[in-house]
Amino acid sequence: MSDISKLYSEKVMDHFQHPHNMGKVEDCSGKGRVGNPVCGDLMELQIKVEKSPSADGGKEIITDAKFQTFGCGAAIATSSMLTDLIIGKTIEEAKKVSNQAIIEALGGLPPVKRHCSVLAEEALEKAINDYLEVKKKGRIKI
């Protein structure tokens, strides 16, 4: 039957039931916590950034990302999808991952749940800024 789950695409339900990259990153390079339990959504994204050893000058690459989320099915699925989309990307590439890209990757979201994808985008932005800030202060070696 699963009437409630018909609200969501198969992809959303799949990520909701079997979320990818849940938890915390060991020695994370940056984190972003957005939302508020009062509003019913709270997301924390942690990323690990490492320099690629390749010949191209060593780009900063997100080698790991993990999330923890308090929220509805859409909030959990967007968090999970976000980590999938950014792992392996350079910081510059990851900056371009928009909420729309998350929605598309999930095969769509109901209109009332679009704010969850915005929250995910904000978490990413905050985590990247956190990383850049920390790097600027020279507290981590890349």
Binding site: D3, S5, F16, C72
Partner: peptide
Amino acid sequence: EGESILLNLD
């Protein structure tokens, strides 16, 4: 959060 509980229950 409640909706994620309901979805799982369903």
